[in-house]
Simulated assay, not measured.
Amino acid sequence: MLKIIDRYIIKKYLGTFSFMLILLSVVVLVIDVQQKIPRIENAKLIDPKLDLTYFLIHFYPFWIINLVMTFLSILVFISVIYFTSRMANNTEIVAIISSGASFHRFAKPYLITSLFIACLSLVINHFVLPWANIQKNQLEAYTYNARNKEKVLGTAPVSAQLSRTEYIFVNSWNKGEKRGSGFVFQKFDKNRKMTYELKASDVLWDKVKKQFVLSNYFEKTINKDDTEKLGNGPELRKSFGHNPDELFPNELLGQNKTTPELLKFIQRETEKGNSNLNAHLNELHQRTSMPISIVILTFLALSLSSQKKRGGLGINLAIGISLAFLFVFSFEALKVVSENKSMSPALAMWFPNIIFFPIALYLYLKRANQ
């Protein structure tokens, strides 16, 4: 009898969740496309192939994956609130408990289903989502407004720390074309004394040979006796061990890496002395904390909606939606706090779970003991 009920609840859980997932994807896709059509039309002026059809095939499927994984916890929470409230209003839960099953036994299929979704989400977050983000991020800048597009594809000064003694500065670097002007590379000894300097009027990334092409270069080597060796020429090809996206990373770079790749990148940047890694550390910790929140929010939703209330489904959904958006808002707010170095990334990305877990546990035990 209980196994039949388990299958019934799991079917309800997955069915409602799937419906919510499809509904959110379709509604948000239609709204976003309508909003961004003018910007897509502008992109077509830059490259004729970048029309709406191209974006629908090469951008939006991957954008939807990112969107779904961002709001997966909310979808689970509202889904559980919805179908459990309906079961409570139809007195199905009362009938199950009255048949001799404990509330803990009734909650078993909720645990099984939430763990299944959480494990699937972990795999997607750590290995599949980065692949989708690579496809998405290649075109996403064309859907931004002019100001944000300039930040991603425009020209700006950049710098990189190759190691604790090696630095690169480019006075004007175009991120889209991967070319710039006013290039400087400097190397120092352990006493912070410059030992080598390389300057060039222009710099270009050759993606075929994976080298930087320096035009009108001038180099200076400073010997231990303070004598200098000078050199210059029309062109010099040089590799600094990384491509421009690695040398001049933005916050999207972490999204594009699988977790093993991201861990290596963070370790390498830490060894170089780069302390501005909180955005990437946030990405790393969020990939695990968000799936764990699926289990926590499932039991919070079960505790809130498994008892028939005055106001019924409507009041439960109102409470659920409010709590769900508070949960997601707290993640986004804590990201900003962490990136400003006011809180460690690990604490920031796990803080909502730390707060919601005891609340969910208390409400669950309270409901189980009624």
Rank of each mutant, 00 (worst) to 15 (best):
D245K: 02
P48I: 05
L52M: 12
L236G: 09
L214E: 03
A141I: 06
T53I: 06
I315V: 05
S275Y: 12
I296P: 04
L111T: 07
K264E: 15
R287P: 01
I65G: 07
N137T: 06
S114V: 01
Q35M: 04
Q267H: 14
E219P: 05
G100M: 10
L45G: 15
S79T: 12
N276W: 14
S215R: 04
R39F: 10
L214H: 04
W205K: 02
G176W: 00
P260S: 10
P234T: 14
V213E: 04
T227Y: 09
I31L: 02
A368V: 04
L252S: 15
I292P: 12
M87A: 01
T258C: 14
T195Y: 02
P352V: 04
P352R: 00
F127G: 10
N369A: 07
K36N: 06
M343G: 15
S85C: 02
Y82T: 13
Y196Q: 02
Q161I: 09
Y142M: 04
F299T: 08
S338W: 08
L281Q: 01
E140G: 00
F299S: 09
A346S: 12
A301C: 05
A279M: 04
E251H: 06
S181C: 01
K136V: 00
V26I: 10
I112V: 08
K264W: 15
I294Q: 10
S181P: 00
K341R: 14
F327R: 13
F77L: 09
S25F: 11
A88Y: 07
D245P: 05
F188M: 12
L253E: 15
L253N: 15
L23M: 11
L120A: 11
F325R: 07
P244A: 00
N42R: 11
N276Y: 15
L326G: 11
Y13T: 09
K199F: 11
G154V: 13
M349A: 04
S239N: 14
Q135R: 14
T70H: 00
I112C: 03
N171A: 07
V170Y: 13
E166V: 02
L284V: 07
S18Q: 05
A333G: 15
P345Q: 12
L52P: 12
F212L: 06
N89F: 15
M69C: 07
Y60I: 03
Y364L: 08
L45N: 15
L253R: 15
G312F: 11
I31N: 06
G176E: 00
Y54G: 09
I117M: 02
S99D: 00
T113V: 09
D226R: 01
S172L: 08
